[in-house]
């Protein structure tokens, strides 16, 4: 059983959604990233998404764009990120998902990347501009050979045909983009999200993780009622940057992550997912 399959089985048994924080590797340097990864693991992250900075991140909003620029200014590369992950892997007891754009991976070479990612202890890879049709040739099979899960995105625009294609090509989990748009914090979750997630779940056997625009514990709680896992990215990236001059910035991020992780626990009382969902939305509005 893969680390991710293990994880989702455990979360199901504990009646909660998985908490999956995201950060940009190397923002502002890899030592900071190492401290944050350890803090997120302590705070109850079930898996962590490690973002590889790219010069032209077309799927990202301003917070992650700025973080990527800081990381690149510090000279971070994909190879250095993988080397650091390898060094850190034994101390991080959670599955790691590498989140990248295609070009840094292709520059390293699909074969070499797959080999190094597997050797570093990366459990899964998500390439935001490499849909299943383009991954099939080079990267997909090379990751599969080495037991690294292939995470693909689904979006509100994905019709049945694309849902089925992703269900077939992916492994580990499917990442549902909560709304058409780029990454970043939003006031409220999309009203259509419950219906869309239900449609995806009907056709996909894999766990479904939801992300893009989820930033508060209220939103996490609402999304946790609808999906197997919840990703929080920009909110944590922004917090880590904003509090960089505080005496203990890592502790502040850890505390926030703890609150977000706690919000993934589903209430026992039924009427269930939707009541919780509504509260999450109104909570988000008032917040």
């Amino acid at each position: 059983m893969s680390a991710l399959a293990d994880l989702f089985a455990r979360c199901r048994a504990e009646e909660r959604a998985a908490f999956v924080p995201f950060l940009v590797a190397g923002d502002p340097d890899l030592d900071a990233t190492e401290r944050l990864l350890l803090a997120l693991a302590r705070a109850g992250a079930d898996a962590i998404e490690i973002g590889v900075p790219f010069s032209d991140p077309i799927a990202d909003g301003p917070v992650i764009q700025a973080a990527s620029e800081r990381a690149l200014a510090g000279g971070v590369t994909l190879a250095r990120i993988l080397a650091r992950v390898a060094h850190l892997r034994g101390r991080l007891g959670v599955p790691l998902v590498l989140f990248s754009y295609a070009n840094p991976i292709l520059a390293l070479g699909a074969e070499r990347f797959a080999e190094q990612a597997a050797a570093s202890g990366i459990d899964a890879v998500l390439v935001v501009d490499l849909p299943p049709e383009e991954a099939a040739e080079e990267l997909g099979p090379r990751l599969a050979e080495r037991g690294v899960d292939r995470i693909f995105l689904l979006a509100p625009t994905s019709g049945r045909e694309r849902i089925d294609r992703v269900a077939k090509a992916g492994s580990g989990f499917v990442y549902f983009v909560s709304r058409a748009g780029v990454t970043g914090e939003r006031e409220a979750l999309a009203a259509e999200l419950p219906r869309q997630l239900a449609a995806v779940r009907r056709r996909v056997g894999l766990p479904v993780v939801v992300g893009f625009g989820i930033s508060t514990p209220e939103q996490v709680a609402a999304a946790a009622g609808l999906a197997d896992g919840v990703v929080v990215g920009s909110a944590l990236v922004r917090l880590a940057h904003d509090c960089r001059d505080e005496p203990d910035p890592v502790a502040l991020v850890e505390e926030r992550a703890r609150q977000l992780a706690a919000a993934t626990r589903r209430e026992k009382a039924r009427g269930p997912l939707l009541g919780r969902w509504r509260r999450g939305r109104s909570g988000a509005r008032s917040g």
Binding site: I58, A59, A102, V128, D129, L130, P131, E133, E134, F152, L153, L154, A155, P156, T157, S158, G159, R162, V166, V177, A180, G181
Partner: peptide, 20 residues
Amino acid sequence: ARGRFGPFGGRYAPETLMAP
């Protein structure tokens, strides 16, 4: 049919844009 000119071209787009 895949939008390829030999080894070049294709549709390297985020999922949200694939159906559009």
